[in-house]
Every structure is written in structure tokens, then in C-alpha cells.
């Protein structure tokens, strides 16, 4: 199998995992506040950035958000989920690229908080009401928790996954 085909296969697998996690997570009530979720599907997006590169990470994000909104029957969520997800991922990509000695957990926490606040801000803009900004402190706090969990998961997964032959084939062909 060619290197690019392997990358495409792995990114498709990560997209499917992100989508399934997102759909399962949607079945549960929010954490403490409306809109607050663990965001465990972001594990696969961040993992894709680390394993395959930025463009694959962005592709997985777009697939997850678009199909997730369609399957959950809430297409309007696309309006505020996609821009906030893109902003958060850009921040994470820049932090990975330009900062040395910053742990993946700190990067994930920063991105997660940015995602939560941006999503709330875009939602306010779409709804034309700033009253919804009152949720932003709570969403930011939930972003800290979910970001730490996502970051720690990616950290441990990366340690394990680098030993897998399929991944070695991608890097050494």
C-alpha cells in the first residue's frame, strides 16, 4: 500500500471514530451546563494532527462536524461548531508548531477553552443576543476539564501508537 493511501485510510478511520464518539456523546445530557460536553471526539482530531499532519487534522474536523450535525438532525449547529472548531484547531496547530517545551495537555486545554468561548460567541452572533455570553465562563471551565482529558489521552495514545507497524510504514516507506 502506498504511503498516501495509508494516510488516507488512517484519516478515514480517525474520522469514523471521531464521528461515532461525537454521536454517542450526544446521547448523554450535558455536563453541568447546556452545551458543555466532554468533547472526546477531539481526541481523534488532535491525534490526526500529531500522526498525519495539519491538513488531515482539518479534514477530520470538517467531516466530524458536518456529518455529526447532519446525523444528529441539528444542521444549524454547523454554523457555530465549524468556525469555533477551526479556530481552536488553528490555535493548537500553531502552538504545536511554534512552541517548544509546551505539553500536549496545555495545548489541548488552550484549544478547548478557545473552542468553547468561540462557539458561544458565534452562537450569540447568530442568535443576535449577547445574553448567551453569560454561559461563556462555565463553558470555558468545562473546556479546561475536557481539554485536560483530551490532551492526556492523546499523550498516552501517541506513546503507544508510535510502536505500531502500520504507522511506522507511513513514516518509513
Amino acid at each position: 500500500m502506498k504511503k498516501n493511501t495509508k494516510k488516507l485510510t488512517l484519516s478515514a478511520l480517525l474520522s469514523a471514530l471521531a464521528l461515532i464518539t461525537f454521536m454517542i456523546e450526544n446521547l448523554f445530557p450535558p455536563l453541568f451546563f447546556p452545551g458543555a460536553r466532554m468533547g472526546l471526539s477531539n481526541v481523534f482530531i488532535l491525534l490526526c494532527v500529531v500522526l498525519l499532519g495539519n491538513k488531515y487534522g482539518f479534514a477530520v474536523l470538517i467531516v466530524k462536524v458536518t456529518l455529526g450535525s447532519l446525523y444528529s438532525g441539528n444542521i444549524s449547529a454547523l454554523m457555530y461548531s465549524l468556525p469555533s472548531g477551526l479556530i481552536a484547531l488553528i490555535i493548537q496547530v500553531l502552538l504545536i508548531k511554534y512552541t517548544s517545551r509546551l505539553s500536549i495537555i496545555a495545548i489541548s486545554v488552550t484549544g478547548s477553552v478557545a473552542n468553547a468561548v468561540c462557539q458561544n460567541a458565534v452562537f450569540c452572533f447568530v442568535m443576535k443576543s449577547f445574553a448567551y455570553l453569560s454561559y461563556s465562563p462555565y463553558l470555558a471551565l468545562s473546556g479546561v476539564i475536557s481539554g485536560a482529558i483530551v490532551g492526556a489521552t492523546v499523550f498516552f495514545l501517541t506513546k503507544k501508537l508510535r510502536k505500531i507497524k502500520f504507522l511506522q510504514d507511513i513514516y518509513f516507506t
Binding site: K3, V49, V50, L51, L52, G53, I96, T99, R101, L102, S103, I104, I105, A106, I107, V109, T110, V113, A140, V144, A152, V154, F155, T158, K159, R162, I170, Y171, F172, T173
Partner: peptide, 30 residues
């Protein structure tokens, strides 16, 4: 034929620690 960017990124994360002193700046900002 090593994919330099991805390998660097993977190596960087997989050889990193759970916590660095510089993380404190990120956490303080948040």
C-alpha cells in the same frame, strides 16, 4: 523517505512530558 514534518510532530509529542514549567504560562493565561 521520512516525512519530516509528521515525524517531528509525532516524535515531539511522544517524547514529551506530561508537564513542563512553561505550561504554567498557558494555564495562567487560561
Amino acid at each position: 523517505n521520512i516525512d519530516n514534518h509528521n515525524k517531528t510532530c509525532l516524535e515531539k509529542i511522544s517524547s514529551s512530558k506530561l508537564f513542563y514549567t512553561r505550561d504554567l504560562f498557558a494555564y495562567a493565561f487560561v
